[in-house]
Write a protein that binds this DNA or RNA. Sequence first.
RNA 1: GGGCUCGUAGUGAAGAGGCCUAUCACGCCUCCCUGUCACGGAGGAGAUCGCCGGUUCGAAUCCGGUCGGGCCCGCCA
Length: 582
Amino acid sequence: MRTLSTEVPAQVGQSVQVKGWVNSRRDHGGLIFIDLRDHKGIVQLVVHPETAEAFKLAEEIRDEFVLAATGTVTEREEGLKNPNIETGSVEIKVNELSILNRSEPLPIQIFSETQSNEELRLKYRYLDLRRPKMQYMLTKRDEMYARMRSYMNENQFVEVTTPILANSSPEGARDFLIPSRVHPGKFYALPQAPQQFKQLLMVGGIPRYYQLAACFRDEDPRADRLYGEFYQLDLEMSFVEDGEEVRTTMEPLVKQLVTDFAGKKLLQDDIPRLPYVEAMEKYGTDKPDLRFGMELVELTDELKDTEFGVFKNAECVKAICVKGASSLSRSQIDQFTEVAKSEGAGGLAYLTFEGREIKSPIAKFLKESELKAIADKTGAADGDVVFFGADTRKVVNKVLGRLRNEFAEHFGLKDPDVIALAWIVDFPFYEMDDKTNQMDFGHNPFSMPKGGLDALNTEDKLSIVADQYDMVMNGYEVCSGAVRNHNPEVMYKVFGALGYDEAYVEEKFGAMLGAFKYGAPPHAGCAFGVDRMFMVLMGEDNIREIVAFPKNGSGVDVMMGSPSVVEEAQLKELHIKPTEED
RNA sequence: GGGCUCGUAGUGAAGAGGCCUAUCACGCCUCCCUGUCACGGAGGAGAUCGCCGGUUCGAAUCCGGUCGGGCCCGCCA
């Protein structure tokens, strides 16, 4: 395929035909310049009045018309060259011109620094995709897929496609249900992930499986989470009993994507393993951004005898030391206080370290020894501010974890050229739901509890950890995996602890349980969220920026108008009756 | 389901009780222009300020509601 930027300059003196869109037209009355654009670049066409037919057409041309032009590639005279475009040393003197298609004025601004709002861009996505950035995202994503596929193949993984028409699963996200004409009253579901199928592939004797898999979840979207559908690099390995083997197998790919592919620096070559509990205590979250420190410092013991009621009565007191934050104005601190409150804090206490003095509304409530202990443990120095969280441990971690991010953002501590990776390991198998006071699965029920049957029989249920691991990239969860439970007995026990009987487990996971009875090999795997990982690698903070046709923040495709109402006849055929309120 | 926030010509912004008969830039239309490159010049059209209601002598501006967008919580790996 001919491309304007790469081929034209090499063809000086030759007659060429070029096709593309009109990027801009400059009509000098007796001479018309046209910047013609294709997916690779721009070249200047010159139309002279001597070529009367072409000139007449050129006068009608407007932005984004589609042209075919034939002419001679000519070296531009000195002084007429344009160093700003790749082809700026040449131009095409046109002798034949045809308008392949016309264009109305565009409803969005494509080629300006100020871009139109997202709603309009999504409505006219086919125009938005003409922007160089969007072109780049699509081709770059193709390159990422190619790298992933070749890496997986080099490592003896086999891509197997699994069903899109699958079954509703009781755990996890809400399903998209698919009715069927031939099965009245019954429904397929779009898979939330190929989880059960890939485990069944292990039983089926596939040693290493992978798939760039479409996954579907009917949950509310976020800036880093697409509505409805997204893609995973999903993989599973048989005869693996230690998650470490999965992690080390996939690390070279991720490192290659960070460095060669995205051109970023790895913060650490050795990717750290961080136990869940440690992540929560140090960073207040299970997906910490490790590009900066600002760790949460435990002060509960140091302040247990304080006279300051807020600290004294709290289950947990922690602090973060923000370097140089004494420059913050009162109103800026108020804004951070609002953030803290939005996460459940009662307020935001702080100490400002200026010279030898400690300035703070709360300093008068604290003894000299307590202030010293705070300074020592947080390492606060001149110019720093120590912010406190005092509440239940859960709330303190949540509030300070959020503030840690906000402060890092405010003080520019998130280096866009650096990628910090970590594996979060040892997630709790069960968790207590605050509201219902009921125990539930911490992650997914298919993971193997560390210690197996013994652990389930003997230990305090809430202390059991799953052999389960997430990869975190600059504060985003980009991968989740586990050593799977391949033992029917453990399976019954795992659900039994939550009060589900064997009949329930058999009803919901019959195929998998059945399969496990016929010599299931131990297996483990994981799945990378490729949309989100690509977003982080590209330095974007909105996942819709890197997807061709995303739903908007309300789950609507404003371009195609989906979802939409359907004909009553279609519903009837599917044995579906609209309810009264519809 | 909840919280915060935004909505002004085709597009992006300004205006924050009377100076608004709403300003600017890009785009659009007409005319002029043979070396521009986001060409230049002259002129022109285009907005019931998301919608409904209220306060006021007077509302783009204040208040209430409503619709739509964005971010977050819940939810979600």
